[in-house]
């Protein structure tokens, strides 16, 4: 039973298929991405790898459907065009909010 899945553009999905993640959903727009995410959650996939560009687009939907449960675990990764800049800042902002001090 496949418990890891990928949502991304065709290249990302192809790459991860080569790496042995068979469950891959190629999405081209927001609606497809939301539907793919819902589908995967319904089939009890425990880890969803998603490219950060798509994640940014469906952020609202993602926050609504996922919440603070352990499963599914959603991991954002950069796609082949490179790293989105916002991610490191997110982590830093979180740390600052929690501890109250800015750590580099």
């Amino acid at each position: 039973m496949s418990s890891v899945a990928v949502i991304g553009d065709i290249d990302t999905v192809t790459g991860f298929r080569l790496g042995g993640v068979r469950e891959g959903r190629v999405v081209n727009n927001k609606e497809e991405a939301e539907k793919a995410l819902d589908d995967l959650i319904e089939t009890n996939v425990s880890i969803i790898i998603i490219t950060d560009k798509i994640a940014d687009e469906i952020r609202v939907h993602m926050n609504k459907t996922i919440g603070s449960e352990i499963v599914p675990m959603v991991i954002e990764i950069p796609d082949k065009d490179g790293i989105s800049e916002s991610d490191g800042d997110q982590m830093r902002a979180l740390i600052k909010r929690v501890i109250g001090v800015d750590i580099k």
Partner: peptide, 28 residues
């Protein structure tokens, strides 16, 4: 080569996901 590299990354991504999720939950 590509397949090998992607296999490696999947492994690392899962580890990273575990740590990041933990951090978010703890932060909450």
């Amino acid at each position: 080569n590509a397949a090998k590299k992607f296999e490696d990354s999947v492994k690392m991504i899962i580890e990273l996901g575990e740590i990041e999720k933990t951090i978010f939950l703890l932060a909450d």
